[in-house]
Design a protein around this nucleic acid. Structure first.
Lengths: 227, 227
DNA sequence: ACTGAATGTTGACGTTGCCAACTTCCGTAG
DNA sequence: CTACGGAAGTTGGCAACGTCAACATTCAGT
């Protein structure tokens, strides 16, 4: 009398963790909202409302994993865009466009990644996220170091600070623009590609001639936020 | 038998709406987290858990009001910083610094304002917010139009597009940088002022010589987001 | 074959956002 | 002056949520 149906629902899901993260990504994309419940994810995966706790200590931890997956997608996207080109300058542009597309194409995910959900109480981002975010930034840094600024500013120890400045400037610009687009504070965003092109173009030209030197003690990378 | 205490708790609070928004701002600043409950606010105001519903239809509406208050504070801050200077260029720098300070000094509020909490289902920001955000942007636009780009690009119909580009670039840069600082993805942020100075400096110099022309059809201002 | 660790389930608790019905108070029309 | 209608606040209830504790099932290694 056990098993009226044959091999339905084998008690152990097999790969719940992945299934849950996948469902979360799906939900984010579909609903464009980040207010989904842990229980809903469990339902979608066809398990009980408490099963996820065997894989995530917290809802927070779940969100961190989802965010991490988002960063992973982002780096993959940027890397593949970049791989099709050889000129560093063009690579840079392609990457930045990909960055924006990723954000605009999946606003809820982007908001989760950068919206500061995590790091509320102890204001520290989960390690998973930081690692993935670092990779994304590394791509940017690589291309810029490789000469996206033109040969006026070659990559040398002497230019370290200036290059760091350029990286930060690019990242900030693109990050901010993406958020503004996603928020609908600026538009229309059909032409986001062309938009960022012209902005970055102008900025890079400026940076190449008169690059900002970051104040000493500033570095581009993660650390304890606030204060 | 009514009124054992004298005139304690006069049943009608007097100015609940304001009190609630104030409490919310306080909570945001204190806890640096945006996960507070409507009921908690009611408790703080010394009213029942349902009183707020006489002033806000929704929690969303409450949050929108708080966000609006945040924009109001922001414009006030920027305006007062600006008023103490006369050179447009210096005004611009002061404003941008103020913008960043506002965000870094109150991360939870900033995240609420720009984190895309609102606009989930129908993806439209509450009107109150949009209006306030427009004012903030207006200040920026004013200063830039007034000549912050130097006399190479005076304010004339011919330069309309270029000026719009500069506004967008500045806003994006500062917005993105603020978020990165708040998120702790970049640091340390003690020197945020100097940081933005050098970045904007470089960018403006670049923009002044070779200003991006925005693709036709792009405008800087709110509209329906996504897609 | 036995056992311990993974993994999933059931049931419960406190809290939350919101709804409905009731009460208290104030301004104002008659 | 009084009656009354609506604004503002209260009480109680509901379903859903995040989380905890206890229990069930399965798998892996001896």
């Amino acid at each position: 009398m056990p098993r009226p149906q044959s091999h339905e629902r084998p008690y152990h899901h097999g790969d719940l963790r992945r299934a849950i993260v996948a469902s979360a990504l799906e939900l984010l994309r579909e609903t464009r909202s980040l207010e989904f419940s842990l229980r809903e994810l469990a339902r979608r995966a066809g398990v009980s409302h408490n099963a996820p706790y065997k894989h995530f200590a917290d809802k927070r931890e779940l969100l961190a994993a989802v965010s991490g997956a988002g960063f992973e997608m982002l780096t993959k996207l940027m890397a593949s865009e970049m791989a099709r080109l050889s000129d560093p300058r063009e690579q840079l542009f392609a990457m930045l466009r990909a960055y924006i597309d990723h954000g605009v194409g999946n606003p809820a995910l982007y908001t989760l990644m950068f919206g500061g959900y995590l790091g509320s109480p102890d204001h520290s981002r989960p390690a998973i996220e930081l690692a993935e975010a670092e990779k994304a930034k590394g791509l940017l840094a690589g291309v810029i170091s490789a000469g996206a600024l033109g040969r006026a500013i070659p990559h040398s120890p002497r230019n370290e600070q200036k290059i760091a400045g350029a990286i930060l400037a690019c990242w900030s610009l693109v990050h901010g623009l993406t958020l503004l687009l996603v928020d609908g504070l600026v538009g229309p965003n059909k032409k986001a590609g062309a938009l960022v092109d012209s902005l970055v173009q102008g900025m890079l030209d400026g940076l190449s001639t008169k690059l900002p030197t970051l104040p000493p003690g500033t570095w581009v990378g993660p650390q304890a936020p606030y204060r």
